[in-house]
Structures are given as C-alpha cells and as structure tokens.
C-alpha cells in the first residue's frame, strides 16, 4: 500500500463511548476491513504504540487514565478521536459528568466524524494519522539536525 509508508501500531482506549464506535474500531481488524493488511497492528501496550485511538467523550474518571496512556507513549505520537462523542461530546455534551470531547484533555491531531464512525472512516483517519506522524518525525529530525549544526559551528 502506497498511502501508508510506515506500519503504525495503534492502541485503543474506550472513553465514555456507547460501544458503537468501539465495535466499529474492532470491526476494522476483522476480515471485511482487515487493517492488518495495511500494517496496522492493534496493541495493548502504550509503549509499543504510535497512534492512540480514542472513542467516546471524556469524564472525570477516565481523563487521568487517558493521560497516563498518552504519557507512556513514545514520541512522536498521534491522537485520533473517533466518533462524534470524542469530537465534541455529541448528544451527551450537556450531561453533568461529561467534560466534552477528547481535545479537552489531550491534543487531538485527527478527528473522525460519524455516529457511529464507519470502519472506512476509521481507516481514513489512521491513514491521515500516519501522514501527521511522518510530519512530526521529519520535524523532529530537522530540529535535531539544526541543533547539531549549531553545536558544531559554536
């Protein structure tokens, strides 16, 4: 596949999702969509993962869990919010226990809309996340190179 250059490893966390986007994310791994053919591997270990997929909005109790997962991931990392709840809170945004979308807690790079997001949309989201991952990687390399050059010149 030409549109994904790397094999991104993903980790999935279910915030306060209704399970809809959750099972659609899982459906991506099953024969009909089979993202493993694109090199995408679902891992349970945050240290192995490049991309964090979050479904559902965030509440007081799941926010620290999300932070812990995010902080454990190695740099560079990309956060993908899946589904309307993860984007803005959706129908639940006025609930007393919902903080809002994932971007109230983490810096989100890609938003995948849909209620529930279709597997195709999730594949698109992961592809977009790969682009951003590559950009972040290039950016970091560039920074390192300039730092080295400054050091050598100075």
């Amino acid at each position: 596949m030409s549109f994904i250059k790397k094999s991104p490893w993903i980790i999935h966390y279910d915030g306060t999702s209704c399970n809809g986007c959750d099972i659609e994310t899982l459906a991506c791994l099953t024969p009909l969509y089979d993202v493993e053919r694109l090199g995408v591997v679902n891992t349970g270990n945050p240290k192995h993962a490049d991309i964090l997929l979050v479904t559902g909005s965030v509440n007081e109790q799941s926010a620290p869990v999300l932070w812990q997962i995010y902080n454990q991931m190695a740099n560079p990392k990309v956060v993908v919010a899946i589904g309307i709840c993860a984007l803005s809170g959706g129908v639940f945004k006025e609930c007393y226990n919902v903080k809002g979308g994932v971007d109230t807690v983490l810096p989100v790079d890609v938003y995948v809309p849909g209620c529930a997001a279709r597997p195709e949309a999730i594949i698109d989201g992961v592809a977009k996340a790969c682009e951003i991952l590559q950009q972040k990687l290039d950016h970091e390399r560039e920074k390192k190179r300039t730092r080295k050059a400054v050091k050598n010149n100075g």
Binding site: F92, E94, C95, V98
Partner: peptide, 14 residues
C-alpha cells in the same frame, strides 16, 4: 465502575 458514566438520565430534563 464509573469510567463510562455520562449521566444521561438527567439529560431527560433538557
């Protein structure tokens, strides 16, 4: 439990 609690029963008033 409480990781998925949204409080949608209260939303019925809105």
């Amino acid at each position: 439990i409480g990781f998925v609690h949204r409080g949608l029963e209260k939303l019925v008033e809105k």
